[in-house]
Design a protein around this nucleic acid. Sequence first.
DNA 1: GTGATGAGTCACAGGGCTGTAGTTCCACCG
DNA 2: CGGTGGAACTACAGCCCTGTGACTCATCAC
Lengths: 176, 176
Amino acid sequence: MATDSTPASPRAEHADGFSGKRAAEIAGITYRQLDYWARTDLVRPSMAQASGSGSRRLYSYRDLLELRAVKSLLDAGIRLELVREVFSYLTVQLDEDVTRVNLVISGTSVMVRTGEEEIVDLLRHGQGVLNILPLSGVKEQVDARIVELYPEGRRVAGRAPADEYADKRIGRAASL
Amino acid sequence: MATDSTPASPRAEHADGFSGKRAAEIAGITYRQLDYWARTDLVRPSMAQASGSGSRRLYSYRDLLELRAVKSLLDAGIRLELVREVFSYLTVQLDEDVTRVNLVISGTSVMVRTGEEEIVDLLRHGQGVLNILPLSGVKEQVDARIVELYPEGRRVAGRAPADEYADKRIGRAASL
DNA sequence: GTGATGAGTCACAGGGCTGTAGTTCCACCG
DNA sequence: CGGTGGAACTACAGCCCTGTGACTCATCAC
């Protein structure tokens, strides 16, 4: 990771990571929320955990995406409890192909979907409420916010070319 | 019964309304929840409000649909706070044409939609999380539950023929 | 009148924060 | 090397929301 040579995107500029305070600013949450989430294991800084007063948390770019995704879900009126369930699956996945994917939450079952058609299928056959979060939006927001808050003169280019996308079911919790 | 002459569906049998206890059973919630919701103005019995100890609440069939819709949203991990917002708009609408309609919640904006195509549009252009609740499911569940819990020998038939369906935006809250 | 039913009330629990007052670590200065 | 300042984490109290349990109390049917 540290020896990363990928070009482009605000991502590359900050291989050194983001402080707790900055992460909160970029994700658009309060510091207290960030702290609470870290202490309760919802989103933890993957580059450096806190280890007592005076230590520093260090969030990776990917962590920022998670923080922002959590905030989006919260803004949409979803209970933190469900968000926790979702992310306990999601953490495994959610890599670089985040850009064109939709996160679909049906009850406690979570999926990553690309095509709109398949989502329509879900709609047609689905019983419960469907929560759909376009992860692309999350990435865009984070990138925009980084540039906005910390322009730092450094190079900021377009994103890398698209890869293949496929639908993946990433988890399913016990039924209600 | 009363002066109602509509045929079919468990609806017709209970023009006299449902007691609080029954309403809770049918909706699949606890009596305490029903009580709390009534006292905090989320779903109130439209046929008879409580007016002191010893009085009785009376819920209409339509109230049952609301109760069940609230429960569905809750089960889907949505915060009661958002549900309140949604229903403050929804209460105006939500009539008999509930059967083929989807309730779409995007942020704090609420819509009733029929065609899947239009939902796809929302997906494609939408920024935030979309919560989609098929109201048809709600009605089916309520009907099934009534028959299941109170078969009462009375006639129970299929539902009335379809009417026209149209998309209607029913409300939009202040932006975040 | 009597008892069952169901609304009213109160206290309290758990989740999700928020505010504030520490604490600790680190960098920098001399 | 010791002192100083500041950034960031921690501890803890407290608030609001959503119930829940346990009673109490008013009605109604008999």
